[in-house]
Design a protein around this nucleic acid. Structure first.
Length: 352
DNA sequence: AATTCGGGGAA
DNA sequence: TTCCCAGAATT
């Protein structure tokens, strides 16, 4: 792209953004900490999903110090339902580092930002440009899609090494005068006009600079390989109550999937067949309940069946467990599939 | 370089 | 159903 085209691209993109850019809660603040929170929440998560979480989060954890001092469980509870919970844990750890090393003020230095937990290339670029006005690219899925079309880049955006190409083209394009608006304009363009499917090219401010549109091949971009299929695991979820009517729950390990979350005990089964899971066969009283739920993660599928037993079965040792009343569930972070179980239980209690 | 991390929105 | 989402950390 020639220099005059670059200037035209910037001018038309930013003019469009001024008129059509989204009014979002995290765009109404200049507080780098709030922008940081928003950027982490927005990773792999749509804007409308994030909004209520963002509002609650910055209300309860209004300062880096407040987040640094909070119990991790309360942070996870705040994040409950949003997914990718290591984001929350890494954000808190990163904030603790900022409080200790930088007196609670986010550094405006790329190298220092990248050393913080939970801040990778995208988030560093977003913070440098949006919070500190530096001309750094912030390459996310939106930007790769837009640039793949504008320049007809055939690199597979699912591959890690492809990102370098997009950094280079954005680095040449980025408006030095207003990198914050430039990066956010690209994101809005990707979300509103240059959509994954059926892009709205006639209303695109940069269609005259877009190679794919000129060739009418915009639907061919971006090139993206498909992920492999998710594997299925079957579990029996165990409901067991003590004499006070409290339910047994357990805490997942502090690493891996849903780390630190609480759940009803889960026993992995061979299949979800009508046969009783092997772990239950010695019990006198086992009732299969009318709750069957398929939960799809990105890389994993849980096939869940609910059982009620009258005594604690042999559960693995070394796991934190406790008896908790239904009314106390809200104190603990639960993954969504177990929130469904809780809903089911509450409905049951209401109808009996 | 590939895999592991959640959950929901949209067509 | 499938794809995608303001990705980062781990292997």
């Amino acid at each position: 792209m020639h220099q005059n085209e670059i200037i035209a691209f910037n001018h038309e993109l930013l003019a469009w953004f001024q008129q059509n850019g989204r009014d979002l809660p995290w765009r109404r603040t200049k507080n780098p900490y709030y922008i940081w929170v928003s950027e982490v929440m927005l990773q792999q998560t749509q804007v409308d999903t994030v909004k209520p979480y963002y509002d609650r989060f910055i209300t309860d954890f209004a300062t880096p110090e407040a987040l640094a001092d909070a119990p991790e469980q309360s942070v996870l509870k705040m994040w409950e339902g949003l997914g990718y919970y290591s984001r929350a844990r890494n954000l808190q750890q990163g904030v603790r580092e900022v409080v200790e090393k930088y007196d609670g003020k986010l550094p405006d230095d790329k190298k220092k930002l990248l050393e913080l937990h939970g801040i990778g290339p995208y988030t560093a670029g977003a913070l440098l440009s949006i919070a500190f006005g530096q001309p750094e690219p912030a390459i996310d899925g939106n930007v790769m899609r837009v640039m793949s079309r504008v320049f007809m880049i055939d690199a597979d955006i699912a591959k890690a090494k492809s990102k370098k190409q997009f950094e280079e083209v954005v680095g040449k394009l980025i408006a030095e005068a207003n990198p914050s608006a430039f990066n956010q304009a690209l994101m809005d363009l990707g979300a509103m006009i240059c959509r994954p499917k059926r892009p709205d090219c006639p209303n695109c401010p940069v269609r005259r600079q877009c190679k794919a549109y000129s060739a009418r091949v915009q639907e061919k971009y971006p090139v993206k390989s498909r992920p492999k299929k998710a594997t299925v695991r079957c579990y029996a979820i165990v409901l067991v109550q003590d004499q006070l009517g409290r339910y047994l729950i357990e805490q997942r390990t502090d690493s891996g999937l849903l780390a630190g979350f609480w759940q009803f005990p889960m026993v992995e089964c061979e299949t979800n067949s009508d046969l009783l899971p092997a772990a239950f066969r010695k019990l006198a009283s086992v009732e299969r309940l009318d709750f069957h739920y398929i939960h799809r993660f990105s890389h994993l599928v849980w096939d869940l069946t609910l059982y009620r037993v009258d005594q604690a079965i042999d559960l693995p040792a070394g796991v934190a467990r406790k008896w908790v009343a239904v009314d106390e569930f809200e104190r603990y972070p639960f993954p969504v599939p177990h929130l469904k179980v809780i809903d089911w239980l509450k409905n049951l209690r209401m109808n009996t």
